[in-house]
Every structure is written in structure tokens, then in C-alpha cells.
Amino acid sequence: MQVGNVTTPFGRRSVTLAQIKGQMRTAEIKAGKKADKWKVFRDACEARVVLGVQDRALAVLDALLTFYPGNELSEDRGLVV
């Protein structure tokens, strides 16, 4: 049996089992999948309470998406603003 602490790559905050499960689901996404950036943003706004996202974070995301070229988010173009 292995014993240890799982932490995020950005510091010593603990990671929940739900977060690890979510990461595993995203690893299963097929290559070449695309999404409309504004639909993703609207979905995040509607689910903000469930996601635990603050209004300020959504405002920052809105600004970042504005500078992202094109309307589709894809692995091919990279997600760096």
C-alpha cells in the first residue's frame, strides 16, 4: 500500500479525488476536438456557483478570451493568450 500526499503543481494545496477524476476524464478527450470559446464562457457563467468561480475570475476569463484569436478553442492552436 502506498501512502503519501497528493498536491497541485502550483503549491502545497491538497487535491481532491474529484479533481483527479476530472483530470483523468480530460485525458480521454479525443485529439482534434474544438469548442466555441464564447459558449464555454457562457456555460462557465451559468455554472459559476457549482464550479465555485467568483465574478472577478469570470471577468478575467472574459478579458483573456477576448485576446484569444478566433472563436474556436483547439489543441492545435494552443491555449496561451
Rank of each mutant, 00 (worst) to 15 (best):
70 G>Y: 05
54 Q>G: 09
56 R>G: 10
62 D>A: 11
36 D>Y: 10
40 V>R: 02
79 L>Y: 15
49 V>C: 06
61 L>M: 15
47 A>F: 02
49 V>H: 01
33 K>S: 13
55 D>G: 04
35 A>F: 08
76 D>F: 05
31 A>D: 13
76 D>Q: 12
25 R>A: 15
44 A>T: 05
70 G>M: 04
30 K>Y: 06
34 K>L: 09
26 T>H: 07
65 L>K: 03
59 A>V: 08
23 Q>P: 08
28 E>S: 10
50 V>R: 10
48 R>T: 10
52 G>Q: 00
28 E>G: 08
32 G>R: 10
30 K>S: 15
66 T>A: 15
55 D>I: 03
30 K>H: 12
73 L>M: 05
75 E>V: 09
74 S>L: 07
63 A>Q: 07
57 A>S: 10
22 G>L: 12
39 K>Y: 07
73 L>K: 00
40 V>I: 08
30 K>T: 11
56 R>P: 01
75 E>R: 11
46 E>F: 05
69 P>M: 02
26 T>Y: 11
74 S>C: 14
45 C>T: 09
77 R>Q: 14
78 G>Y: 07
77 R>L: 15
44 A>Y: 00
67 F>G: 09
55 D>T: 05
53 V>N: 00
46 E>H: 09
21 K>Y: 10
79 L>V: 12
60 V>T: 14
32 G>I: 06
55 D>V: 02
58 L>V: 04
60 V>D: 06
43 D>N: 11
75 E>N: 09
74 S>R: 10
65 L>N: 04
53 V>K: 01
62 D>N: 10
45 C>W: 02
25 R>W: 11
50 V>Q: 12
